[in-house]
Simulated assay, not measured.
Amino acid sequence: MAIVVDLDLQLAKRNMSVGEFAAAVGITPANIAVLKNGRAKAVRFTTLDAICRTLGCQPGDVLRWVPDDGANDGQDGGS
């Protein structure tokens, strides 16, 4: 999966530390690191809502899709 979480950029724009952001969103700094490092398998809508509310942004400002290398546009070549 090639969903990229651009929290670093958003935090830098607002001069906000990870600890400050984590406290405002209500999740641990360790979970922020999981999101930032691309290790998250899912994000709850309530967490995404809190992120957007804290940053004053839209989900698309935080999440973006990048195609995987060798992606076959959803076609598996089978019949």
Score class of each variant (00 low, 15 high):
S79M: 13
A33L: 01
I32S: 01
L7Q: 06
V5G: 05
A12L: 04
K13G: 07
D68R: 11
D61N: 11
V34A: 12
V43G: 03
P29Q: 05
R64K: 12
V62Y: 02
R39N: 11
A30K: 08
V5H: 01
V34D: 08
G77Q: 10
I3P: 03
A30F: 02
G19E: 15
I51A: 02
M16K: 01
Q58R: 15
V66P: 05
K36M: 12
V66R: 04
P67G: 11
F45L: 14
A22P: 01
V62W: 00
G74C: 07
G77K: 10
E20Y: 05
A42N: 09
L11G: 02
G19Q: 09
N37T: 10
D76Y: 08
A22G: 07
C57P: 03
D68P: 08
V5M: 04
C57H: 04
V5T: 14
D68V: 09
P59F: 05
S17P: 00
A40K: 04
T47V: 09
A42E: 09
D68N: 08
V43H: 06
D76S: 15
M1T: 15
D49G: 11
L11M: 07
F45I: 02
V43I: 04
Q10E: 12
K36G: 09
I32M: 11
Q75I: 15
D49S: 12
D69R: 14
N31D: 06
R14W: 00
W65L: 15
A50Q: 07
A71M: 05
G26Y: 07
V43Q: 02
G70L: 04
I27V: 15
Q75V: 15
L35T: 01
P59L: 11
P29C: 12
P29R: 07
D61C: 09
G70H: 01
L9R: 01
L9N: 04
I32C: 13
W65P: 04
A50N: 09
R53G: 06
D8M: 02
L35M: 15
D61W: 00
G19V: 15
A42D: 04
A40G: 10
V4R: 09
R53V: 12
N72F: 04
G26R: 03
K13Q: 08
G19K: 09
T47S: 07
N72D: 12
C57K: 00
A24S: 14
T47A: 00
F45C: 05
A30S: 15
Q10D: 07
S17Y: 00
T54L: 06
G26S: 11
R14E: 02
P67M: 12
G70R: 03
P59H: 09
N15A: 06
I27Y: 10
V25C: 01
L63F: 11
Q58N: 15
C52K: 03
L35W: 06
T28A: 07
A24Y: 00
A23Q: 13
M16T: 10
N15S: 14
V34C: 02
D8L: 03
A42M: 07
T54D: 08
A23K: 14
G78L: 13
T47Q: 02
L48F: 00
K36S: 10
V43E: 08
T47F: 06
V4L: 08
L9M: 14
P59D: 10
P67V: 08
Q10C: 11
G77N: 09
N15Q: 11
V62P: 00
A42H: 13
G74S: 11
V62F: 03
V34Y: 01
D49P: 02
D6T: 14
T47M: 10
A23I: 10
